[in-house]
Design a protein around this nucleic acid. Structure first.
Ligand SMILES: [Mn+2]
Ligand SMILES: [Mn+2]
Ligand SMILES: [Zn+2]
Ligand SMILES: [Zn+2]
Lengths: 138, 138
DNA sequence: ATAATATTGAAAATCATTTTCATATTCACA
DNA sequence: TGTGAATATGAAAATGATTTTCAATATTAT
């Protein structure tokens, strides 16, 4: 049991959000998380606070925001400072969390070829997952 | 001068949108395109029609929608049926159009490793372009 | 022509996210 | 430990891109 050094700069609301996110492994919207908190217990933070908490958590590298191209951001807990991408099934909406970034090590190439200094990227892959493929075939 | 076989299924408004897009090489929002059309001449289609035209053009593979993660889609003309990705400068908002898809040929690997059938993907890279890097150094 | 079908666009609706602003909480430190 | 400054909270309103409605037009088929 070691003290969690990362809690230091976390607001009361952010801690609750973080805790709620610890309980799920799916990509959740701000509203999903808010509902979850409201359902769980009392003392649940308001939606505005959830949005603010998510911003803070993303800034601190504890959470990543995932863009799927519909107008709604998803969030998920990550290993601090890391990031990863997904295979997202258009049919069941479930997603496979990839273990490593598919375009890691590309930054150097891009820098030398275009003089462009990469700072971040957006990468998500859509299609049909194994289960859903089997269903259709059946 | 050969007849353009692709015009067949294009609405009057869609043709105007297509023409307007032919004149720009930047990523444009629906509203950008609408403004452009309004400025250019009369007979400009309304914003609703521009949205509908863009949908149609994307379906037909003449235009691609680009997601940057701010809540506003960009559109650009593409070589029919193809697609590409960008290096987007967070400073000047300008973008480098990459000549080839960085994750082409990955579909097969993903299919065999996860049983996931890829149908599309989202990939954009953010950072600082050459010009803007030089400005800051100067 | 005439009726059926598709296109258009102004206005209203949607809906995730942000902003406001007043209240409550936490903090610094005298 | 009190007290004022700084920060956090949340309800309500605002924002803004996109979508929906629906009535008027234009196009197409018979
Ligand atoms: Mn994930
Ligand atoms: Mn491009
Ligand atoms: Zn990555
Ligand atoms: Zn690609």
């Amino acid at each position: 049991m070691q003290a969690n050094k990362l809690d230091l700069r976390l607001t009361k609301g952010a801690k609750k959000v973080l805790e709620a996110m610890g309980g799920i492994r799916t990509l959740a919207t701000a509203q999903d998380i808010h509902s979850l908190l409201r359902t769980d217990g009392d003392e649940a933070p308001g939606l505005t606070t959830v949005y603010r908490a998510l911003d803070a958590l993303v800034s601190q590298g504890l959470v990543q925001a995932v863009e799927l191209g519909d107008g709604e951001k998803r969030y998920e807990l990550i290993k601090p400072g890391e990031h990863h991408h997904h295979l997202i099934c258009s049919s069941c909406k479930d997603s496979v969390h990839l273990d490593q970034c598919l375009i890691k090590d590309l930054d150097t190439l891009i820098k030398s070829k275009y003089g462009f200094q990469v700072s971040s990227h957006l990468l998500e892959i859509f299609g049909t997952c194994k289960k859903c493929s089997e269903k259709k075939t059946r």
